[in-house]
Design a protein around this nucleic acid. Sequence first.
DNA 1: ATGTCTTACATACACGACGTATGTAAGATG
DNA 2: CATCTTACATACGTCGTGTATGTAAGACAT
Lengths: 195, 195
Amino acid sequence: MAKARSEMIAETRAKLVAAARHAFGTVGYANASMDDFTAGAGLTRGALYHHFGDKKGLLQAVIQQIDAEMTARLHKVSAKAPTRWQAFVDECVAYIEMAVEPEIQRILFRDGTAVLGDISQWPSTNGCIQALADALRQLQTDGEIGADIDIDVTARLINGASAHAALWIANSDDPQATSKRAVEGFRTLLERLKT
Amino acid sequence: MAKARSEMIAETRAKLVAAARHAFGTVGYANASMDDFTAGAGLTRGALYHHFGDKKGLLQAVIQQIDAEMTARLHKVSAKAPTRWQAFVDECVAYIEMAVEPEIQRILFRDGTAVLGDISQWPSTNGCIQALADALRQLQTDGEIGADIDIDVTARLINGASAHAALWIANSDDPQATSKRAVEGFRTLLERLKT
DNA sequence: ATGTCTTACATACACGACGTATGTAAGATG
DNA sequence: CATCTTACATACGTCGTGTATGTAAGACAT
């Protein structure tokens, strides 16, 4: 039953991450009491400190989970597109749309950056930027975008623009309308990357 | 001596803002103890709560001060440029360079967003976006950039891209080199806005 | 099979920080 | 000159984090 044991452990970790993710995503990192949400998961802070070291460690685990999910979603979107260019644009738009979701917005773009600094700097996090960079690289080798474009820089700039656009959208009076405007404006800018 | 009195009050406010700004800029908002930095200014938390309501209010005051300074600096930069286009590009580059400064980065882009949400949504804050939008509007009426470009959206996207670029630069191993790359990549993208 | 050792948590405690309620002295106002 | 308001300081309660300690159960060696 060694397996059952490790399964139990993995389960507790998952429960803690899930509980923290919910708390962070709703009330925010600073306002989330570890006592509260661990109790909600039927555990105590002891388990938390044992597995994740401290509150920041837990946030990191939550972010890794979210980032993995987002990356998977981006890959799915680009896989469905008929052309490479379409795949790239769809990825960007999908990224913005994901970034508008309250949980992602709050945890990744607000608390994540504040508590842990630049997300794109952590090892094995933000596969999203990687996904964008990969798409751009493909387009460049295909000759669809200018050879003068610095892929990594551009990927980050696009990522930043998307994140901020998402912030703007989510906090605007009419998110629907703002989203439309933002995505439209974004498309026109992306068009200009073409050769 | 009514004037002397109001002057004293303004002075205390200024002292509190300055002390908070220094603390927030160095150790960060969450780690800045109000007892500590008010004592450093020769005051107590009582004055702080009286003038700013709470810690968030103080952060808001600090950010307003910083934003005003940044806006002034941007205007100065653009005023010095020979052409409208040059003025715009210089503003963008100057914005990135300012955003790399530790104090601005920490207070505006990390803690500001986390604690208060989207900065560009607050009334009379982020004159920087306004400055960018104004410059873009000028260029559009002059016919230097496409009529299909949505000014407000683009200003925000550029702002977001700059902010993220700054995060990237500041946290990179070699900020100097990264800054060069980022600014260069940024320039090439901006060039593509032209008609 | 049994004793030891390690792991996975729970419990208890100390410390610090925020917010609030209250106090007070000095200037403003009539 | 009396009252009222303003601009702070002081004192206190509460909460949240981190750490130190306790404990029960599984892993492992003999």
